[in-house]
C-alpha cells in the first residue's frame, strides 16, 4: 500500500519535473489506436516495421521545423500566416540559385535566409509600429509574397545538386539527418524559450504587453525578434522540402497548408493562442500526431477526402482532450 503510494508520488514528482505536456498522452493513444486498426484492417506494419516508424518522423520534419518558429510567435501573442509563402519563396529561390551546382549552395542559403530575415522584420515592424493586428498584417504580407513568387516563377525552377540532397535523404548512422535537424531545432526553441532572457521576455510580452512595457521591456523588439526567428524556421523548412523534391515550385508551401497546420500543431501542443503560455515540446507532440495520422491513413488506404474530415475532427478532439476541464471561457 504505502510503497505504491510512494512510488506514485515519486512518479508524479518525476512527471512534474520533466513537465511532459498532456498532449503526449493523446499522441500515445493515437499511436496505439492507429497501430491496432492497422493490425486489424491492414498488414500491421506500424508496430513491426522500423522503416515506417522512421518515416513518421521524417514526414514530420517539414511541419515540425516551421511549427517551432510559429510556437515562438504565438507565445508572444502574435501569429504568422505568411510562413507558407515564405516556404515557397525559399524553395524556388534556392533551387533557382543553385541550378544543380554544388558551388552555388552557400550563396543560395545566404540569400534565402536573408529573404527570411527581411520577411520577419517586415512582419514584426508592421505589427509593432503600425499596430496592425498580426492576423491581418501577416495575411497581407503573405499575399504580397504570393504575388511576387507567382509573377516570377510559374513552375518547377532550377534544381538542387546531389550534394544538397543529403539534408533530405542521407543518414548519420541509422538516423536520418532530417530527424537530427528537427531535434536540434526543437532543442534550440526550448533553449531560447526557457533558458534565455529573450524567452523570458517573450513570455512576459505574450502574457501582457502593457505589464511588459511598464516593467521596462522593449516589447516591440521582442515581438520583431520572434517574427524573424519564425520566418527563419520557415526558410529552413523550405530548404528541407527543396532538398527532398530536388526542385522548387511556388505551390509547395500553400499546398502543404503549412500556415494553418503550424498554428494548429502549436495549439494542439498546448500553446495558448492568447500568448504567454506553452512551449515547443508540446508542439513536437502535435506534429507527431499529424505524422502518425498520415501514416495510419496511408496504411489503411483511406479516401483522401475522408482523411481531411478526420484530420479536422482529430485537431478539435486533441485540443478538447485538455481544454474541456478548464474553467475559463474560450474565445
Amino acid at each position: 500500500m504505502t510503497t505504491t503510494s510512494i512510488s506514485e508520488n515519486r512518479f508524479k514528482r518525476f512527471m512534474r519535473h520533466v513537465n511532459i505536456p498532456p498532449v503526449y498522452y493523446f499522441l500515445v493513444v493515437i499511436f496505439l489506436g492507429g497501430g491496432i486498426l492497422d493490425q486489424i484492417f491492414s498488414d500491421g506494419q506500424i508496430f513491426t516495421n522500423q522503416a515506417i516508424l522512421l518515416n513518421i518522423i521524417v514526414r514530420s520534419v517539414a511541419l515540425g521545423i516551421v511549427a517551432v518558429g510559429q510556437t515562438l510567435v504565438i507565445v508572444g501573442a502574435s501569429i504568422d500566416l505568411s510562413v507558407a509563402y515564405t516556404i515557397s519563396i525559399t524553395a524556388v529561390m534556392s533551387s533557382y540559385i543553385m541550378q544543380g551546382k554544388t558551388e552555388n549552395v552557400p550563396l543560395a542559403i545566404l540569400v534565402v535566409f536573408g529573404i527570411g530575415i527581411l520577411i520577419g522584420l517586415i512582419n514584426g515592424l508592421i505589427i509593432t509600429k503600425l499596430r496592425i493586428n498580426s492576423f491581418i498584417a501577416t495575411l497581407g504580407t503573405s499575399l504580397i509574397i504570393k504575388g511576387i513568387i507567382n509573377a516570377t516563377f510559374s513552375n518547377y525552377t532550377g534544381s538542387v545538386p546531389k550534394s544538397f540532397q543529403f539534408f533530405g535523404y542521407s543518414t548519420l548512422g541509422p538516423i536520418p539527418v532530417a530527424i537530427i535537424v528537427l531535434i536540434l531545432v526543437v532543442f534550440a526553441g526550448w533553449f531560447l524559450l526557457n533558458r534565455t532572457k529573450f524567452g523570458a521576455h517573450l513570455y512576459g510580452v505574450g502574457g501582457n504587453v502593457e505589464v511588459g512595457r511598464l516593467s521596462g521591456l522593449r516589447t516591440d523588439r521582442v515581438v520583431i525578434g520572434a517574427h524573424i526567428l519564425c520566418s527563419m524556421s520557415a526558410v529552413l523548412t523550405g530548404l528541407f522540402l527543396v532538398s527532398r523534391l530536388q526542385s522548387g515550385a511556388p505551390w509547395v508551401g500553400p499546398d502543404g497548408l503549412y500556415d494553418l497546420e503550424s498554428i494548429a500543431t502549436s495549439v494542439v501542443g498546448g500553446t495558448a493562442l492568447a500568448g504567454g503560455k506553452g512551449g515547443v515540446w508540446g508542439t513536437l507532440a502535435g506534429v507527431l500526431i499529424f505524422g502518425v495520422l498520415d501514416t495510419v491513413f496511408n496504411q489503411l488506404g483511406m479516401n483522401p477526402y475522408l482523411k481531411t474530415v478526420l484530420r479536422g475532427a482529430i485537431i478539435v478532439l486533441a485540443v478538447a482532450s485538455y481544454t474541456y476541464r478548464s474553467k475559463k471561457e474560450a474565445a
Partner: peptide, 11 residues
C-alpha cells in the same frame, strides 16, 4: 469544450 474558435473552426 472550450476550444479557441480559431482552432475549432479551422477543424
Amino acid at each position: 469544450l472550450k476550444i479557441p474558435s480559431f482552432i475549432a473552426t479551422l477543424g
